[in-house]
Design a protein around this nucleic acid. Sequence first.
RNA 1: GCUGUUGUAGCUCAGGGGUAGAGCACUUCCUUGGUAAGGAAGAGGUCGAGAGUUCAAUUCUCUUCAACAGCUCCA
Length: 646
Amino acid sequence: MINITFPDGAVRQYEPGVSALDIAKSISEGLARKVLAAKVNGQVIDATRPITTDATLQLLTWVDTDGKATMWHSSAHLMAEALEALYPGVKFGIGPAIETGFYYDIDLGGRAIGDEDLKKIEAKMQELAKQNSSFTRKDVSKADALAYFTEKNDEYKLELINDLQDGTITFYSQGNFTDLCRGPHIPGTGAIKAIKLMSIAGAYWRGNEKNKMLTRIYGVTFPSQKELDEYLTLLEEAKKRDHRKLGKELELFTFSENVGLGLPLWLPKGAMLRERLVQFLQRAQIESGYLPVVTPHIGNKKLYVTSGHYEKYGKDSFQPIHTPEEGEEFMLKPMNCPHHCEIYKSSPKSYKDLPVRFAEFGTVYRYEQHGELHGLTRVRGFTQDDAHLFCRPDQVKEEFIKVIDLVLHVFKSLNFTDYTAQISLRDQEDRSKYIGTDENWNLAEQAIIESAAEKGLKTVVEYGEAAFYGPKLDFMVKDALGRKWQLGTIQVDYNLPERFELEYIGADNLKHRPVMIHRAPFGSLERFIAVLIEHCAGKFPLWLTPTQVKILPISDKFLPYAEKVAGLLKNAEIRAEIDERSEKIGKKIREAELAKIPYMLVIGEKEANEELVSVRRQAKGDLGAMDIPAFVSLVQEEVVNRKPFE
RNA sequence: GCUGUUGUAGCUCAGGGGUAGAGCACUUCCUUGGUAAGGAAGAGGUCGAGAGUUCAAUUCUCUUCAACAGCUCCA
């Protein structure tokens, strides 16, 4: 007998060769029906594979990330089976599970498919899923594997197999379909109850644009129709919240081909919103000891040669501009740090001066590839809420922790409550792409890991994701729809101080090199505002929203009183507008509601006579009448506490 | 940058080889109405741009620009 240890610590004994599925059945039939895969000794395997030695076991179902991934991977195989049935001779590239769903890259031999085809494929998948075919695993020799796919004339699979080692190759089959695959898979196709093929896209074989373009079909499956419906509803909601759509509707920003691609134009309301965010962070930064600085939009090319960025990114940047007489080369600044390094160097520093923290809302320009441009999230000109901290090596951790506090303050104020910290370290194998010494890298990586741990952040460590000059900590934020965004970033840099030969005089009266920390809680204002718009669906918190109050006179007769109210609100620093049109109150309300104005003040005879305002809250309705000081304090309380919209 | 889809009024979109249409928005007039659309009239478009085919192109073809989706990239 072998001992199987469950996640709760319980240990049960089974015959050697028992499968996770058998074990599930021994517990309950209901559980067995839900099992998609198993984690045995930490490794995800088929629930049907025999377990021969003592092991820890976790049964994976739909609620587990690995369970979902296994089902989606199996769904890709199911789709492949359907494709092979419908389009004989189709060749297959790769078909993995992705964050939401799966895809398969296929070569249809020049045949184009469209949305109608997706419906047909879906129907075929449904039909095949109903048969509840088992997934069976088979070890094959490299020679046999090559023979099988030579027979099928599938050059993609042959290329994949050629890269594999003999003895490690497995095939999985279900129904009439067999695929090269390392697995694992769900026990049978019957677990796949609801199927939706989402889209067709082109994708290069092995992600290389020199290779042939394959047809990629994206899909997603669920264990019930209800869950699929919920997912589709979520997508609808995401569409409604798209910042490009809301940005237009709420008159926040626009683009003009005449100005240039990826160069946002902020409209008055958007500029006002942006300005509030800047003021908010500027104030928090000054309280935290930051010193505002201002630097120009261009810089001598030499600056970027010194920093190393020219070598690394020069070819992919806006090209240098030249002075007409001397022919000197200047670049639109792609980053603020070299400028800040020069500010640091403008006066000698003592160890007593450190840390110094230079902050600037600095607009930078980067040449992003045409196809990458996307609303405000990917642009060619954007403003970073940038700051560079110069400190002694012994201050790194403390500074890092302070920055984390600042970032968390920002998130809390804007109602981002769900986030994780992604710590990006060097690639453990290939260290050639990084600038700087091993010793410095180790110090920096340690400081980040320790600070994150001390602040109790939920962290994920990613190797190979570090910038070329240093490790970093990025905040991954989940918005109201559960979508992940990378916002704030903190990066340690031992490189630029070296390149710019930054120094301070230590207590020992010798010259030392400071450490630099780059940080941006928002990242860029453009991107942050895009995420904020989608997070709150355009219903900004009162302290940020461009128009806080709309005053709606019932008829023209009450305009004088409306103006008096507007004046009083303005004195209280409340942003109010009057709807002066000769329209009926219902229409004025409707339009203010659609514009997502938080407070509407309905003003008519009763209010004018008694010096009151009738307050209506967006999406909530009539709150009744109150006097003006009461309304002012209602608004001010909400503003001061930076309450979310609802 | 690559592949695909799309491009008609300020916005959302219909149409289609014989020089254009709706709703909303806008302007004017009437209406002065109490919590999500009052009425009437009017104005507004080189049908993304360039070339070709045709007696005739907004419609067909090619090129180009842009947006969108995906891929590759992201200091």
